[in-house]
């Protein structure tokens, strides 16, 4: 079976500064791949390169089709939903408007169905529909960001540090929901996460990024047992 996402020799950077020096990674259909690494390793840049918000070279295939030549809006239209660094919420707009924008490319009938499903995962959003998104709590904003991404009915979800700045109990809630999303919606996830223990627990595959290069990759349980990973990221 062709994997959902295959990335080969991906290079990207900002202006003249190269950040990614040829990255390979993959996400299986309905699989979760964790992308780990220290601050500044290039995790965020990897996601940006896939969704085309930075200039990139190399090969990116979604179910076999090249998408590395596509503009950001076309990558999204092919079913890649990116919850960026900082969540990418439309802060000045209401929760309802954010959700409608998430479903911008979908036919109205699908959107209504997806919306009902998303409220099943994030019931708090239903009671906040008229509220300005910028006034939500951090956890609610993260939920809104994921909900907005799911309304695109994506095949692949790119998540950039969904636990960032959130209380542990909220993080636990969000990770439980992600497990459910993968199972129910059959969405593949490329998960960037600082909390390696949590990420390795959820993911089936993982890669470790160091200054723009993948240094270790493999099944999540293998990485969990890897000495380098354990010492640097799991702390035991």
């Amino acid at each position: 079976m062709t994997p959902l996402l295959v990335v080969r020799n991906l290079r990207a950077g900002y202006g003249a500064t190269a950040v990614l020096h040829g990255i390979d990674l993959a996400v299986a259909e309905a699989g979760i791949t964790a992308l780990l690494g220290a601050n500044g390793a290039g995790k965020t840049t990897t996601l940006r390169a896939i969704s085309g918000t930075v200039h990139r070279r190399g090969e990116i295939r979604l179910t076999g089709e090249r998408i590395d030549g596509c503009r950001t809006e076309d990558v999204a239209r092919r079913g890649v939903a990116h919850v960026p660094d900082g969540r990418g919420t439309f802060r000045e707009l209401t929760v309802d408007e954010n959700l409608r924008l998430g479903a911008y490319t979908r036919p109205a009938a699908d959107a209504a169905e997806d919306r009902a499903r998303v409220f099943g995962w994030f019931p708090v959003l239903r009671s906040r529909l008229r509220q300005q998104a910028g006034t939500l709590s951090g956890g609610e904003q993260q939920m809104l960001a994921i909900a907005r991404a799911l309304l695109l009915r994506p095949r692949l979800l790119l998540l950039d540090e969904p636990s960032f700045g959130l209380a542990p109990i909220v993080v636990g809630e969000i990770f439980a929901i992600m497990r459910d999303i993968r199972r129910v919606a059959g969405v593949g996830i490329l998960l960037v996460e600082q909390n390696a223990a949590l990420a390795l627990d959820l993911a089936d595959q993982a890669c470790l990024l160091e200054t723009g290069r993948i240094v270790v990759a493999g099944p999540a349980d293998v990485l969990r047992a890897d000495t380098t990973v354990r010492r640097s990221y799991l702390g035991y």
Partner: peptide, 13 residues
Amino acid sequence: HNPESSRLVGIRV
């Protein structure tokens, strides 16, 4: 408000 996020939801900015 936010052209970058608009692209991410598929809007042709």
